[in-house]
C-alpha cells in the first residue's frame, strides 16, 4: 500500500501547499485540456518546462514523481505501441499486414508518451500538495452548479469525505485480519496464482462483515448527531481564495498564449 504515490498527500509548506484547492483543481484540469492542443516540439518544450517548474515548486523530491509513474508504465507503453504500430504516414520503415511502423507513428508515439507522463506528473503534484479533505471540499464547490439538475452534491461530498476518513481504519483492519489468519496458518503470496487468490477470501469476508457493521454504526452516529440528508448544513471548513490563487489562473492564461505562439513557430 505504501508504494502508491497517486492520491497521496505529503504535508509541506510550499507555495503549492498554500494555494486554494479549487485553484489547483481548475488549473490542473485546464492544463490537461490545453495539453491536447500542443502540436509540435516547441510547444512540448514549453509545457515540459512548466511541468518541471511546478514540480520544483512543490518541494517534493523528483524521485517521488517517478515512483508515481511506475505503476502506470505498462498502460502507457501499451498505448504508445498501439500508436506506433497502427499510424501510417511519412517514411515507412516496416510493413506487415495492417502493422506499419512509420515516421509519423513513431513521432506521435513519443508525443503520447510525454503527454501521458505529464498528465500523471501534474495530477500527482495536485494530490501531493492538497489535503484530500480540501480536495473534496473543492470538488463540492465546483460541482455546486449541478444542483440545478437535482444532483445531490452535498451528499456526494460528505460521502467522499467519510470514505477518505475511514481509509486508514480499513487498512488497519485488513492488517489485523491478515495477522489473525496468519496465526491460523494461512500463507500469503505462496503457490500458484489461483491459490494466492484463494487465500484472499478469508481476508475479504471478515473485512466485508466488519465494514458493514462499521457502516451501520457510523450511520447511527451520524443520525444521532443530527445529520439529515437534504437538510441545509453550514460548513466549518472554509476555502479561502487569495491573490495567489488568482495569479495561478493568470499564469495558466499566459501559458495558453505561449502555447499558441509556439504552435505557429514550426
Amino acid at each position: 500500500m505504501n508504494k502508491l504515490i497517486i492520491g497521496r498527500y505529503l504535508p509541506g509548506t510550499s507555495l503549492l501547499h498554500i494555494l486554494d484547492a479549487r485553484a489547483k483543481l481548475i488549473a490542473g484540469f485546464y492544463f490537461i485540456f490545453i495539453l491536447f492542443f500542443a502540436e509540435d516540439w516547441p510547444a512540448y518544450i514549453l509545457l515540459w518546462s512548466f511541468t518541471f517548474w511546478v514540480m520544483h515548486l512543490s518541494g517534493v523530491h523528483f524521485k517521488t514523481y517517478i515512483r508515481g509513474v511506475r505503476p502506470l508504465i505498462w498502460l502507457i507503453l501499451f498505448t504508445v505501441c498501439l500508436q506506433v504500430l497502427f499510424t501510417a504516414g511519412g517514411e515507412i520503415y516496416f510493413e506487415w499486414g495492417p502493422v506499419t511502423i512509420s515516421q509519423f507513428g513513431i513521432v506521435s508515439g513519443i508525443y503520447i508518451f510525454f503527454r501521458f507522463v505529464m498528465i500523471i506528473f501534474i495530477s500527482t503534484v495536485i494530490t501531493l500538495t492538497t489535503k484530500p479533505i480540501d480536495l473534496t471540499e473543492a470538488i463540492h464547490f465546483l460541482l455546486k452548479p449541478l444542483r440545478i439538475f437535482k444532483i445531490p452534491v452535498e451528499e456526494i461530498s460528505i460521502m467522499l469525505s467519510i470514505a477518505l476518513r475511514f481509509i486508514p481504519n480499513l487498512l488497519d483492519e485488513t492488517q489485523k485480519i491478515m495477522d489473525a489468519q496468519k496465526a491460523r496458518g494461512t500463507e500469503f503470496g505462496k503457490g500458484s496464482l489461483f491459490q494466492q487468490m484463494k487465500t484472499l477470501v478469508p481476508i475479504f469476508l471478515p473485512l466485508f462483515v466488519s465494514s458493514l457493521n462499521r457502516a451501520e454504526e457510523v450511520a447511527n452516529v451520524m443520525e444521532v448527531r443530527g445529520y439529515q440528508p437534504n437538510a441545509r448544513r453550514s460548513s466549518f471548513r472554509k476555502l479561502r481564495w487569495k491573490w495567489a490563487d488568482t495569479l495561478s489562473l493568470v499564469i495558466m492564461i499566459f501559458l495558453t498564449v505561449g502555447l499558441l505562439i509556439m504552435n505557429t513557430i514550426v
Partner: peptide, 9 residues
Amino acid sequence: GLENLNMPY
C-alpha cells in the same frame, strides 16, 4: 453536529 444545525461559521 453544529454544521447539521446549519449554524453560522
